[in-house]
Design a protein around this nucleic acid. Structure first.
Lengths: 191, 191, 191, 191
DNA sequence: TATGAATGAGGGTTCATTCAT
DNA sequence: CATGAATGAACCCTCATTCAT
């Protein structure tokens, strides 16, 4: 087996184990067993346990960052927004283990790691808030604190994803996209 | 010092320590030191470290559950919704350490614990979804999957709280309540 | 048992174990067993294995440094020289385990540690060489490189000590002192 | 490359690595890298790491044993003594890596190995002591314990070598021979 | 013969928990 | 009740050695 292939297998195994048990409950031996190798083998490919976890998160962040496009307010805003919702849902629903690691376990590693996670979310929120502010100038975003709107959006997406993964009710992605968009566009309370 | 008082002091100390370091990085010795007692004393009041953490979370859950009122669709729905938003914000902003434990660290303890957290959120979502379904019958909630709306709401609130605590920008609670309500009522995107 | 007492016991046990097995072959468990405590207890008194070894060597160095007096060439040189020989022999013969650690095992720990040992010997040689140089000025030390004389002296003492400890032949310390002095004063080859 | 040649290369590499790092800090991988072969190759030529170290020491011992001639008291004793001093200095100064392994690292391997080293020195001392005893019969060696004289001589030589290698001051070998001889013949203290 | 990926025993260290005082 | 020294299970990581290619 090629070195690169074995490395991928270890990452796959680690992803499954971390998703199930979290960072601290996942023992290096668990990862090795899940990959059907000896414990020592893990250390031929990674310097330590933490770096495996870190690589999984980094990779997920990269995919998310790559999938999201900064909204260009000169173009079709609605479809760009929907594209981004679709992109985020796509990345995370296609890799529910990574998603679970990020949402359920990434915070419990250690303070340094938490900062990294926070920084990523902060970056997203920042980018989103800037787009929203631009949108306010164009009158396509309601008045109000764009950081709050950004936080709403992120939170709604996160929890939606958690809900969708935990709950067995099957829903097409497009329906989810529309549901999120609907929320952003008109909420759900009616008088 | 009374037994009950000492127990409270230990919980207070544990809350601070867990909030700062998370479950695994917080050592029993840290908690003892924060409470100015010896390590052994902790075990006179709690059977183990996990149960302290658990009690903090349980207590927070109780306060949250107690603060939230099931919406009575016969009454003033708007104000009941706002009341609930206000209540959740109140409980969590008044006790930022508990909030941090819940949002940043509760997931990293172990799989069993994660289930407990998930179950609580699920209960909230369930209750909220039921109210929303009722509301749909009365025409005051838009058509669509009430579980999704419930997830949106929860997620938006969570992230809002994270944002508010992390970000230094000071905002009155009432402004936050109105902002959340505004989102639920009409979103923020305008064409 | 007092904390200080337990610490001494651990040092005593470590001294015996290190003397017998050397740094690497001596396991922390060996030291714990020799002191009749659990392995974890060792770490209540020392941060790590190396620091125990280091403390033993440091202590020995202190005792040696304290025992040796710089020779004052205004006084009775012969007796001062004999005093120093006697002092070094005394310190090391009274603590053969430490001696063995120093002579047989201290070099095998790691490069940093070896430097420390070298530095100590170098300091001794330096001090001795300076005294000898002074002695040359007074005509009581033969011409020649004082560093070499210092090295001879140290080496002769070291090996004498090794010999005396390994060999069962019992000899009074005073006889040893006289023998060393004799060597320094007139060698042993006769024509 | 011939089997024998490769074996020599591995020994050369090992000598360098052991001299620099000592037995425990020198990893088999270090040796392989220094010899520009793969780790597994080392094991085609040697059964284990210890045996490489052992062979280096054995070889050095052989060269030393071969260089030293038992003093024939019928002949020119002075020059035979000088010859031996010259021979030991020659062997060790020509191969400073082996010397460093012997003096600085051979003690730290394990108890069994330490015994081997001790045994070698003991053999040397024994041989030397016997010659000295013979010399005492002929009146060319002072009265006194010949084992002690042997120990002195060995120790002085060892430390001289250490000094010469560590210190940058350049000295001709003949000067060193004369210095050692001078010590043996008349010490360095004068009244 | 040479390779280097894989193995797995073993060791240092941590820390939740216990218990004698 | 309170203490804090002691315990020892458990884990991460290293590296000498093996073996399939």
């Amino acid at each position: 087996m090629s070195k690169e292939r074995r490395r991928e297998e270890l990452l796959d195994a680690a992803r499954r184990v971390f998703a199930e048990k979290g960072f601290h409950e996942a023992k290096v031996g668990d990862i090795a067993r899940a990959a059907s190798v000896a414990k020592g083998t893990v250390y031929l490919y990674f310097p330590d346990k933490r770096s495996i976890f870190s690589e999984l998160i980094d990779h997920l962040f990269l995919r998310l960052s790559g999938a999201i496009l900064r909204v260009d307010t000169d173009g079709d805003v609605i479809n760009q927004v929907k594209h981004n919702i679709r992109a985020v849902l796509g990345v995370l629903l296609d890799d529910p283990d990574s998603m679970r690691i990020l949402f359920a376990h990434a915070g419990g590693v250690d303070p340094t790691f938490s900062e990294k996670i926070d920084a990523f979310y902060d970056g997203l929120k920042q980018m989103l808030a800037e787009s929203l502010e631009e949108g306010q100038g164009l009158g396509i975003v309601a008045d109000g604190d764009p950081r709050l709107y950004a936080a709403f959006t992120l939170g709604a997406l996160k929890e939606l994803l958690t809900e969708v993964t935990q709950n067995s009710e099957p829903r097409t992605r497009e329906a989810l996209v529309e549901a999120v968009y609907g929320l952003l566009e008109s909420g759900y309370l009616r008088q």
